[in-house]
């Protein structure tokens, strides 16, 4: 909906109100470098990665410095640690070729770099299941355009035994949709949940691959605050850093997820 309100602003400005955009020079302070840990572990063997990088200056190019040679391991509830190895040719990216998370388990992550130690905790819940993917036809996309497009809905049933949080990711024709969809089961505990991928444009003949992840509360808070930490346009909230579950001052997040996937192909 925020996008729609932004569209309102764009339309007003677009309709001959003589508005314009230009690049300007704004000097910015340069904050001290912080370490960013992005750690993702799924319940598919080998489907995991930890990327260690550093922040950079706003105006520098986006080749962020990666941290090589760090010690990275994940420990499960029974104390078993699994060490990740750095991928050859991808400095800063660590992986374990066969590790997979189990449902309903607590995990902790430990990272030793040459200068710091970072830890984090996460937990998994039951393995979710997508019941179906459905769609409706609409004219134009969110009030724009006049071609036939589709709004894809995902439907799944929540487990009523716990407080559950979910994230849904979509790929349209192989390209990852950057929109963040997160939700919690407060309003539909134990019931079927239907939600559209409301910011994703889907056209005739597109292949849509949907992944449903069951995430923990800290990850939900991270992605939720990440999606609303605005781009500076007047209709987003005051910008702020997402709420991270990394300890000791690192940015980023540690997530352990149980997943399910499904594909749907739009009619021609």
């Amino acid at each position: 909906m925020k996008k729609a309100i932004l569209n309102l602003g764009v339309i007003l400005t677009g309709f001959g109100f003589y508005s314009c955009e230009k690049v300007i020079d704004i000097p910015l302070d340069d904050a001290d470098r912080k370490i960013v840990v992005e750690a993702v572990f799924r319940d598919e063997p080998g489907s995991n990665y930890v990327v260690l990088s550093k922040t950079g200056s706003v105006y520098d190019d986006s080749n962020f410095e990666k941290i090589s040679g760090a010690t990275v391991f994940i420990t499960d509830g029974s104390g078993t640690s699994t060490y990740l190895g750095e991928l050859p040719g991808e400095p800063g990216k660590y992986n374990h070729p066969t590790f997979a998370v189990a449902p309903n388990t607590n995990y902790s992550l430990t990272v030793y770099t040459s200068t710091d130690t970072f830890t984090s905790a996460s937990q998994t819940f039951y393995k979710p299941m997508i019941d179906s993917l459905t769609y409706i036809e609409q004219l134009g996309s969110f009030g724009f355009g006049t071609d036939t497009t589709y709004l894809v809905f995902f439907n799944f049933t929540d487990d009523e035994n716990a407080e559950n949080y979910y994230r849904v990711r979509a790929w349209v024709n192989g390209a990852a949709d950057q929109n963040l969809y997160v939700t919690n089961d407060e309003l539909f505990n134990g019931q079927v949940y239907t939600q559209p991928l409301f910011a994703t444009t889907v056209e005739k003949g597109d292949t849509v691959f949907v992944e449903l992840l069951s995430i923990d509360k800290a990850n939900y808070t991270y992605f939720f605050t990440l999606s609303s930490s605005g781009g500076g346009d007047p209709f987003s909230p005051t910008p702020s850093n997402p709420v991270s579950n990394m300890e000791n001052g690192a940015l980023g997040y540690f997530g352990t997820y149980t997943t399910d996937t499904m594909t749907i192909i739009m009619p021609q």
Binding site: I26, L28, D29, D30, A31, R33, K34, V36, E38, V51, S53, K54, T55, G56, S57, V58, S62, F64, A176, Q178, L226, S229, G232, T238, P239, S240, N241, P242, L251, G252, Y253
Partner: peptide, 19 residues
């Protein structure tokens, strides 16, 4: 106004860092 003082990458996207 709040402007970033740094940036970093998450999920393949550049994210602004605020102090």
């Amino acid at each position: 106004v709040t402007f970033p003082s740094g940036k970093y990458e998450i999920d393949g996207q550049v994210v602004n860092y605020y102090t």
